[in-house]
Amino acid sequence: MIRLTINGQIHQVDVDADTPLLWVLREWIGLTGTKYGCGAGQCGCCTVHIDGVAIRSCLVPVGSVSAAAITTIEGLSPDASHPVQKAWLQHEVPQCGYCQSGQIMAAAALLAAKPRPNDADIRAAMTNICRCGTYQRIRDAIHSAAELGKA
């Protein structure tokens, strides 16, 4: 039995400790906002926060995070009021939306670490794939979110 703290709630999961956190979230806990895109740490669809840091959950054995605070897209804010979510809405970032949970989590972690990122910071931090090609709006929305976060 593995004990997990996800979005502030405690969960007990009877699962093999090697199981990737992504699949525990999606299949055992039922938090399907975190997506599978590659299972290989390549795409970032599965990005969550582990102790505030953006991590690709498909490569995280669930047994390694029992002491950590895990935040998923469902727990980023109670009502889509996180500055990144607001900026995403304002810029109409999502197209199909499938990558956006991961993009939003990556952007939120970037802003937490660096409240006023420049374009180079954004390029370095935002390596998630979006096949719909929303990168321009992601970049613009992160700058807007930085402004919103200041206020």
Binding site: T32, G33, T72, Q85, W88, L89, E92, P94, I104
Partner: peptide, 27 residues
């Protein structure tokens, strides 16, 4: 006009086909 389908894509609440969960479902 703003897209009609954006809000649930910001919260992880849009249910894609791969997110479907049904009672007794196998994978």
């Amino acid at each position: 006009v703003a897209r009609l389908d954006t809000p649930p894509k910001l919260e992880g609440s849009l249910v894609y086909a791969s997110d479907v969960r049904l009672p007794g479902m196998l994978n």
